[in-house]
């Protein structure tokens, strides 16, 4: 009985593992290796590919490239922190302060925009904010604006847009961990005379850190890799690094340069996630859950 069972398990292992290996190697591992390889070759004839560091050299010698890179990284970190600052009090309200009856309703309502595509969300902001948009009409009719102002195409609007498209990726994991936080811990601290700030610092934040980390990773990745929002809401001279990749790949048709940029972006995102996990002493597998 036991022998035949282990024999059968081997068959099922082969059946289950084959498609998974095909998926992960053909669509993830090999393409990433190809990306790395391409980034070290010049744009010669296909048969006569030559090894070179020129694609990376171009990145470091042309300020436009590395400035965009640094800018994209800093903006992504800023957006992640802003999203966290909004999501913490919000999820705390929904799970701990709102009446039990409204809690379920709020959880469902807050999640509806989560399913709406980024393009449509950004489009909504565009018709609200542009010079002939709703907000301008509204503020003009109130007499707050004397003439229409272009509210789109600047850094503040772009930041707001990025916060908007990404914040639900923080709210979802945070609602999860906040719900599992036992109220009696907070009650006990309160009874013993702890101040609000102490309760937040000593009980709530340490408890929800895994949720903060998974939310932050998702938000950071989404913002760093975003193309639509910076392109549609940012200013004309406000390049995002993904746009740089698109330009090299599709407009200049320089796949090797694009590969180098792509690999640098991948390196940056892995590095920042790694550092963030090390600082907060979290495990990647647990954070992603």
């Amino acid at each position: 009985m036991k022998n035949s069972k282990t024999h059968k398990i081997r068959w099922s292992l082969i059946i289950f593992i084959t498609p998974v290996l095909l998926w992960l190697f053909l669509l993830i591992v090999f393409p990433q290796l190809e990306l790395l390889k391409m980034s070290f070759f010049g744009t010669g004839l296909p048969g006569k590919a030559n090894f070179t560091f020129a694609n990376y050299a171009a990145f470091f010698t042309e300020p436009i490239y590395w400035l965009t890179f640094v800018r994209t990284a800093l903006y992504s970190i800023t957006v992640t922190l802003l999203v966290l600052a909004i999501s913490l009090p919000l999820t705390f309200y929904i799970t701990k302060i709102a009446k039990i009856q409204t809690q379920g309703f709020l959880t469902v309502v807050v999640l509806i925009p989560f399913w709406i595509s980024e393009l449509i969300q950004v489009y909504g902001w565009m018709i609200l904010l542009r010079e002939s948009g709703i907000l301008n009409k509204f503020l003009l009719s109130l007499g707050i604006f004397k003439q229409p102002h272009e509210l789109l195409y600047n850094n503040v609007t772009m930041l707001m847009g990025l916060v908007y498209i990404s914040m639900l990726f923080m709210i979802v994991p945070l609602i999860g961990v906040m719900q599992s936080l036992d109220d009696s811990l907070i009650e006990a601290a309160y009874d013993l005379g702890a101040k609000k700030i102490t309760i937040w610092k000593k009980i709530i934040i340490p408890y929800v850190t895994p949720g903060i980390m998974s939310g932050s990773i998702l938000v950071f990745m989404l913002v760093l890799g975003s193309y639509l929002t910076p392109k549609l809401m940012g200013g004309k001279n406000a390049l995002w690094f993904t746009e740089q990749i698109y330009n090299s790949m599709i407009i200049y048709f320089n796949w090797n340069q694009g590969a180098a940029f792509g690999f640098l972006l991948l390196l940056l995102s892995s590095l920042i996630i790694f550092v963030a996990l090390k600082i907060t002493r979290q495990d990647f597998r647990k954070v992603i859950k």
């Binding site: 993830i28 393409p31 990433q32 990306l35 990773i217 998702l218 990745m221 760093l224 890799g225 193309y227 993904t242 990749i245 698109y246 792509g262 972006l265 991948l266 995102s269 892995s270 996630i273 992603i288």
Partner: peptide, 8 residues
Amino acid sequence: LVIPGVIL
């Protein structure tokens, strides 16, 4: 999940 979609 942590590779930007553009890079995929």
